[in-house]
Design a protein around this nucleic acid. Sequence first.
DNA 1: CACAAATGGAGCAGTTCCCTCCACTTGGAG
DNA 2: CTCCAAGTGGAGGGAACTGCTCCATTTGTG
Lengths: 220, 220
Amino acid sequence: MATTSERPLRKDAERNRQRVLDAARELFAERGLGVSLDDIARHAGVGVGTVYRRFPDKEQLIDALFEERIGEMLSAAGKSLEMPDPWLALVRFLERALEMQAEDRGLKELLLSTSEAHARIERARLQIQPLVAVVLERAQQAGVVRADLVVADLLLLQHAIGEVADYTREVAPEVWRRTLVIALDGLRPDRRRTSPMPCPPLDDEEIVCSMRDWGARRRR
Amino acid sequence: MATTSERPLRKDAERNRQRVLDAARELFAERGLGVSLDDIARHAGVGVGTVYRRFPDKEQLIDALFEERIGEMLSAAGKSLEMPDPWLALVRFLERALEMQAEDRGLKELLLSTSEAHARIERARLQIQPLVAVVLERAQQAGVVRADLVVADLLLLQHAIGEVADYTREVAPEVWRRTLVIALDGLRPDRRRTSPMPCPPLDDEEIVCSMRDWGARRRR
DNA sequence: CACAAATGGAGCAGTTCCCTCCACTTGGAG
DNA sequence: CTCCAAGTGGAGGGAACTGCTCCATTTGTG
């Protein structure tokens, strides 16, 4: 991928490179982009030196890892545009985008912050936005989404619900879908009924666990 | 307040104590509970020693500051119960709770994390929850809120929208109200129209600023 | 087998944080 | 006014991080 036509790496080196990539993917997904390269090295079972030789800085490692994932996001938006029903298109896009964020904290952080450092990713984001705009406009013109909505509102909604996913990840990783259902019902211009809830709510014990996890993470 | 019937502080000492309290209130509100006591001292214009003599540890300082604010939250829930219209009661409570969180990051963090260390605050939270439950049940029995909702969902909603407030605080401190309107419209069992948006949406430039701020804060 | 390529992890420099300590200043009782 | 306990400021110690370098050693391979 980033093997820029140099002489190929020695076999063991290539294997280690892959290990680092795997470890990084895993750690970024579960702890966010804040993890240190030392952590990644330990988790990959190689020395820090090895990591730094292969990826001069963290930015490059992140770039290498997330280009693909952001591509997926783009294709999700594209697929939505092909769906005949404008409402379902919007729903599916939000659902898919949030599923990806719920599974991968690093991705979420990357999507929500402007990262001067990651030019490639920045570019990808700029491609996604107009697609989303079209999905939204189409739904509005069909009269299935409130007219006073703007793409930025969808971004905020994503942030909001993504945060719920983060909050409850360890304890009830699907609960964010309830919050999404509420939000989606709030996007319609009018409706007779509520949409069905996709999963049971957080129980008391789960609430306490979420709070504890979140506090601990924050203190770290 | 915490002057437990000891001999009163010397006049200058009392003045400094107040300065520390003021500085802490301000910093906690704008940067969250993570600020260091050293920071607070600098901001208060006193030495760190002074801070530590008066507040042996951060927990105590936080306790002293936030008991009052959590009390306000409790009374907000109480006032909601006195309102005749069950829907407006719920709306007002969520609105008020979120206003408080939007103005005070520290408060938000305290509300969302279980803090074994802050027994008093823990107790206050336990008093609020049943009140909210009653507000919700009343609205459900009146048929103005979807029946499949649970108090935990309201908590998540609060977290979600509070996060929006955090995200946009510097740039458009009222935008979270739009997200709240969407969520509220999603809580109704059925409806003919959408509620009016209370403020203009984020424009493109504001989006970029929010992203930058958020990324910077996270990196710090 | 020889030797370049690759390795691991001790260790350095830089932060940031909490907190202690003590030589100095100051309020206010007598 | 005098004097001393109360109060002060902030240097600095210790601990926990971070990103990153360096080099004696091991390993793959022509």
